[in-house]
Amino acid sequence: MTIERIDTCFSKLAAEGKTALIAYLTIGYPSIEESFECALAALEAGADVLELGVPFSDPTADGPVIAAAMYDAIRGGGNLRAALEVARRLRERSDKPMVLFTYYNPVLAFGEEELVAAATAAGLDGILVVDLPPEEGRGFRDAAARAQLAIVPLAAPTTGADREPRILEGARGFVYYVSVTGVTGTGEAPLAEAGRQARALQDRSGLPVVVGFGIDGPTKAREVAAQGARGVVVGTALVRAIGAAAPGERARSVADLIAALRAGLDRRDGVA
């Protein structure tokens, strides 16, 4: 399936007039088993795409909430291998697109070609490598392209018009637009502007553009969607909800937040 699964998902949502809801979770937080349950809950409660975050010891693009979750996840045995295994188990239960969200050093340690093979076997559809700009990792990109695995590019508010073609070259699946100069979990993202930028980038690239960073609930999700972005990513808010919930209540706290986001988006989209 791979890229095709992502394409089908966005086409279907577009036909229904719906905005994609993308859930990010740090795999291994608070334990590998609970992150599996939370991910499954997110998918069942209405997330359209799942991002499986691979814990890394030095996550420089992440704010304190996700950084702390990664620290705990690593201590609990979380790593790239565990994330692949969680993906494989989720694939048995769900047919929705799943993307691995990782830093580059765990990829290098695993082996680039080996990861492409393992990700495909696990039923993943794409990989987003936070610290791998388009100038780097050509071998990895080529291997992913051969396997029909989407390498999801990042675009940022600082990305100028001169640089955009390089980011979009060979891009498949969707583009992740970072709403703000900052790390994940920031409270002050200019979301309406991000939504407009995403819409414009969509028109230029012909690919769905989703917006992430700073979306913590239905109100902000709607604000982004109102400008025409094709999807919103919610990460820190989910990780925070998991951390705040009592053991045994964690999957339900994820399901509740996803349901609220889904309802908020659908109300805006006029499909509820």
Binding site: T60, P133, R138, L154, P157, T158
Partner: peptide, 26 residues
């Protein structure tokens, strides 16, 4: 890939950061 890429010393170096910082490094 060419051996003497800008910003590289042999196989080492490069620019592995999030997209937001790339324009600042440029």
């Amino acid at each position: 890939e060419p051996r003497r890429r800008p910003g590289y010393y042999g196989d080492f170096g490069g620019r592995f950061v999030a997209e937001t910082l790339i324009p600042a490094l440029t």
